[in-house]
Each structure stands twice: as C-alpha cells, then as structure tokens.
C-alpha cells in the first residue's frame, strides 16, 4: 500500500499537500499499487473532500481533536498505528513533514529520500529519485536498495493534476500518546501568501536603500498575489523580518516567478532562489551577476522602473 500524508494547517489543506496527493496518485498508477491518504485532526467542513478532485479514492481520517496541533511524537505514533504494510509513504517536505518523516523513517524502518522532485522509479533492488543538493548548486540522484521507502516531496516541484474521483473517507481514532510537545500559541504573519507556497515572489535587496521604500514592493506583490521576500543584508539590517530572507541561510524557494529588485545576485542568494522556474531581475547595475542567472532583465533604477511597472499592471487590470 502507498500512503500519502495530508498536512493539517489549522483545519485547511495547503497547496503542498495537494501536490503530495497528486504525486502519490501518479506514483500509485506507475507502481500499480493501491493508495490511501492519511489526515490527522479536525478539518474544516468539506475540506478533505476537495482531494477527490486530484484522484484520491481512499482516505483515513484520524479525527481526535488532539491532532489539531502538530506534534512530531504524536503524529509519528498515529501514522505508525494507521499504516498497514506500507511500501511508500509520501509527505510534503514542509515544516511538519521535515519533522515527521525522519521519525517515521526510524520507527517503521523505511529509508527516507527527502526533498525529491521526480517520480520515484524502481531501480535495481529498490528505488531511485532526484533531489536538489548543495543548496541548488547540484542535483543528486539518490538510490535506496529498500523495497519500502518514505519520500518527502519538494514544494512547487510537482504540478497537481486535476482528476475527478469518488473519495471514500474512513474515520478512526488513535489516542494521542503524549503532551510533551505542547503548542501554546500561534502567530500568522498578517494574512499574506506564505513564502514557500507562493506562485510569485517579489523580493527586494539593498538597492532599495531603506525599509521606508518597501511600499512599492508590497504594492507590486499585492497586485500579483505574490509573497514578499528580501536578501540577507536587508534582513540583517533589520529592514525586513528574518522570515522573509531568501538565500542559502534563509528560506529556499522555488516559485513559478521570482522577481528580484535591487538584488545583485551573490552566489549565496542564488542558492536560495535558483530553483525558481522563471527569474526576472530589475537592477540599475548592468554588470550585476544576477543578469547572468535570470530569464528576463530590466536595467534601470528600481525607483523608476517599479512604479512604472505598477502603473502598467494597473492599466492591464483595468484599475487605472
């Protein structure tokens, strides 16, 4: 049996889980093995049914209230109790998946292939797949001789395929094992698009000269439904919060479109963003290294180009 774990983000299913479900459906067809989804904790009314649009037919829902908060211990116990003879377990490589997958790997004695972006392929005695290594500077083909394997799927690497199915949800209860990892508070970053899930990211660098100039970055992001990000010096200066820092020591992202404004494109920055499918660079220095590592470039002063771009988008949208 192949299993796919659906992350519970305060009762909602996020994009990363839909990608994982769609990936698991494709894998189930390829390996000719049945697939079951696993969801833990309370979800919003009708939320889990949405997975039927992506070809999922069977789902086990562990309904205990206790699983509304992620706990690596409790989730590991619950998943280990629910699975029966698992061959592959698929998880999104998100914040929870990165804590859960390695625990499950030990508990179930299934090797872990993490952050993979290709469909698992039978190879010799086991499986192989590809993943990013060296912070986007390399692609690693990994192999495990095991017949049983856990994989975490890199965000934005698998395009969900719509496929209508009739979804049968089985509910069950598994008592939560401990309260050793107790969530006592939560803070959402002002209702914006989460950086790691965003289709489009608008990012600003030192070229913007100061935090007071971020208004146009936010306006552009809002027009594009994009998340905002920044380079390391900007976060280090305290112009923007650390959770917006993308780069080798910040967050690694792979959006469809990355727009870099006033960022020179140092190798450490590229390491965090070069997995983006398309990169657009706006910089007044025509020799900025980023222009050698992008798809589209505008050589010009951000303080002239960005307001012009905002106006042009508004015209396009019929807002101006």
């Amino acid at each position: 049996m192949i299993y796919v774990i659906v992350e519970n983000l305060q009762g909602s299913i996020r994009k990363a889980s839909i990608e994982a479900v769609s990936y698991a459906v494709a894998l189930s067809e390829k390996l000719q093995k049945p697939l079951q989804g696993i969801a833990l904790g309370p979800f919003k009314e009708g939320e889990l049914q949405k997975l039927s649009q992506y070809g999922l037919e069977q789902l086990i829902h562990v309904t205990n209230e206790a699983y509304k908060d992620f706990s690596s211990i409790n989730y590991t116990n619950a998943v280990a109790q629910v699975v029966k003879d698992p061959t592959v377990i698929v998880l999104p490589q998100g914040y929870d998946g990165r804590a859960l997958a390695p625990r499950l790997s030990i508990r179930l004695q299934m090797p872990l292939l993490s952050g993979i972006h290709t469909l698992l392929e039978p190879y010799e005695q086991g499986y192989k797949a590809q993943r990013i290594a060296y912070s986007n500077k390399g692609i690693e083909t990994v192999y495990t001789p095991s017949q049983k394997v856990i994989v975490t799927l890199k965000a934005n690497s698998f395009v969900p395929q719509k496929k209508e199915a009739s979804l049968n949800i089985t509910t069950t209860e598994v008592a939560a094992a401990t309260d050793k990892e107790r969530v006592v508070g939560r803070e959402q970053f002002s209702g914006k698009v989460p950086l790691t899930e965003a289709n489009v990211v608008v990012s600003g660098g030192r070229g913007l000269k100061g935090p007071e100039n971020w208004g146009m970055i936010e306006e552009l992001a809002q027009l594009l439904g994009a998340a905002t990000a920044c380079s390391k010096p900007v976060a280090d200066e305290g112009w923007r919060p650390h959770h917006e820092h993308v780069g080798q020591t910040g967050i690694q992202i792979a959006p469809n479109v990355y727009i870099a404004i006033g960022i020179s494109g140092a190798i450490q920055h590229l390491a965090g963003v070069s997995a983006s499918k398309n990169i657009i660079v706006i910089n007044k220095d025509k020799d900025a290294p980023f222009f050698k590592n992008c798809d589209y470039g505008v050589v010009g002063d951000a303080f002239e180009v960005v307001p012009k771009l905002i106006e042009a988008i508004k015209r396009y949208k019929g807002l101006a």
Partner: peptide
C-alpha cells in the same frame, strides 16, 4: 548506509537573459 548517491549533476543553467527596455514596460507586463 540506507541511501546512496548514484550521481551528482549540475542544475540546468539559465538560457540567456532577455533584456527588456525600461521605456517599454508593457513588454514586462
């Protein structure tokens, strides 16, 4: 080990940057 590296490759480089004239911003739109 339980997992091994079969091969390491370099990521596909970006094809050349297509430059857009800032005076023609509608092209970027």
């Amino acid at each position: 080990p339980k997992v091994e590296t079969l091969q390491l490759d370099y990521p596909k480089g970006r094809t050349q940057c297509k430059f857009i004239d800032p005076e023609n911003i509608d092209e970027l739109v």
